[in-house]
C-alpha cells in the first residue's frame, strides 16, 4: 500500500529519536558506572594498596584518559562485541553473558507466547461485556496485580502452587536436561509470575483502548444500522483500536524488563538479570554496564515498536 510522505517523515523522526535516546541512555549508564563510583582502581585494589600500584592499574585500565575518550572507546567496544573483562572473575564479559542471555530470552519468549493471546482475549472480552460480572472480576484482578510488587506475585504463586497445592517446586531451577515434565515444572513458576505482571498491564490497556473506540459516534452509527454488539465491537471498534492495542502490547512487554530482574532473583533462574544483581553485590562494574545496556536496548526497542505501531495503524496516513 502506498503511504503518504508525512508517514515516512514520522517513521524517520521516531527512529531518529530512538537513536538519540540510545546515546543519552548509554552515556547515563557509563556515567553512573564509571564516573560516579570515583576511582575504580582504588576500589579494586582496596584501601591498603600503595599509590604506585593504584597509578599503575589506572594507567593499565586507561583510566587516566579524559572521560569522553573512554566513553567513545567503550561505545566502540560495545558495537564490536567487546564488552570488556569482569573485575571479579577475570573472564570476558561477553562469555559470561552469552548463555545467560539465551536463558533470559527463552523465559521472555515463553511468557510472551502465553500472556499476549490470553491478555488480548481477556481485555477485548472485558470491553465487549463492559460492566458485566466478567468485566468486574477481570478489572479487580488486574488492578490488584498492578498494585503489588512483583516479588509479592511471586511469593503468592509459590504459596499457592508449591506450598498449599504442592504441584510445583518452590525455588528451583532444576536440571533442564530431564524430562519434558521436569522442564515445564522448572519454567512454570517464573512464567506464571511474569505472565501475571505483564498480562495485567496489557489487559487494562487493551480494555481501555477498545472501550474508547466503542464510545465513538461511528460505533453508535453501527448500532443504529442494526448491528449486533459483536459486530459493533469486532467489526467497527476493534479495527480502529488495533493501533492502541499493539502499542499496549509492546508497552506491557517492556514490563518484562523490570519483572525479570525480580523473578530471576527470587526463583534463582540463571538469566542475565540474576547475573546483574549478583554483579551489583560484588560491584563488578564492567559486567553491570553490559547487562544494563542489554536491558536498556531491549526496553528501548519495545517502546520504539510501540510508537511505530501507533503511527502505522493511523488510517489517516493511508493513501
Amino acid at each position: 500500500m502506498l503511504r503518504s510522505l508525512t508517514f515516512y517523515i514520522l517513521i524517520a523522526q521516531r527512529l531518529g529519536i530512538a537513536a538519540v535516546t540510545l546515546v543519552i541512555v548509554s552515556f547515563a549508564v557509563f556515567f553512573a558506572t564509571e564516573l560516579l563510583p570515583g576511582d575504580v582502581a582504588q576500589v579494586l585494589l582496596g584501601q591498603a594498596a600503595t599509590d604506585e600500584a593504584v597509578a599503575g592499574l589506572r594507567q593499565a585500565m586507561g583510566l587516566d584518559q579524559p572521560a569522553i575518550w573512554r566513553f567513545l572507546g567503550w561505545m566502540g567496544g560495545l558495537a564490536t562485541g567487546d564488552f570488556g573483562m569482569s573485575y571479579v572473575s577475570n573472564m570476558p564479559v561477553a562469555e559470561l553473558i552469552a548463555d545467560r542471555l539465551a536463558n533470559s530470552l527463552r523465559l521472555a519468549a515463553v511468557t510472551t507466547a502465553i500472556s499476549v493471546p490470553l491478555a488480548l482475549a481477556l481485555g477485548i472480552g472485558a470491553a465487549m461485556w463492559q460492566g458485566s460480572l466478567f468485566d468486574r472480576i477481570v478489572s479487580i484482578l488486574t488492578i490488584s496485580v498492578i498494585s503489588v510488587p512483583e516479588f509479592m506475585v511471586a511469593t503468592l504463586a509459590v504459596l499457592v502452587f508449591a506450598v498449599w497445592l504442592g504441584w510445583l517446586p518452590a525455588l528451583s531451577y532444576g536440571a533442564e536436561t530431564g524430562s519434558i515434565g521436569a522442564m515445564l515444572k522448572a519454567y512454570a513458576m517464573p512464567v506464571i509470575t511474569l505472565g501475571f505482571v505483564v498480562s495485567a498491564q496489557m489487559i487494562r490497556m487493551t480494555r481501555a483502548a477498545v472501550i474508547e473506540t466503542i464510545n465513538t459516534p461511528y460505533v453508535e452509527m453501527a448500532l443504529l444500522k442494526g448491528a449486533s454488539r459483536r459486530r459493533m465491537v469486532l467489526g467497527h471498534a476493534l479495527p480502529n483500536a488495533l493501533g492502541p492495542i499493539a502499542n499496549a502490547v509492546a508497552l506491557s512487554l517492556s514490563y518484562l524488563v523490570g519483572g525479570v530482574i525480580i523473578v530471576e532473583t527470587i526463583f534463582n533462574y540463571p538469566g542475565v538479570a540474576k547475573l546483574m544483581v549478583d554483579a551489583v553485590s560484588t560491584r563488578d562494574l564492567p559486567l553491570i554496564q553490559s547487562c544494563a545496556m542489554i536491558f536498556c536496548v531491549s526496553y528501548l526497542l519495545l517502546i520504539t515498536i510501540a510508537d511505530l505501531t501507533a503511527i502505522l495503524s493511523n488510517p489517516r496516513l493511508r493513501r
Binding site: 538519540v20 553512573a32 563510583p37
Partner: peptide, 23 residues
C-alpha cells in the same frame, strides 16, 4: 522534553540497580 524522554527510556528498576551499584 527530549532529554527527559530519553531518561524515561531507562527501565526504572535498572536505573536503581545501577545507581546503587555505583554509589
Amino acid at each position: 522534553s527530549r532529554l527527559l524522554d530519553a531518561f524515561n527510556g531507562i527501565p526504572s528498576l535498572l536505573f536503581g540497580l545501577v545507581v546503587v551499584a555505583a554509589v
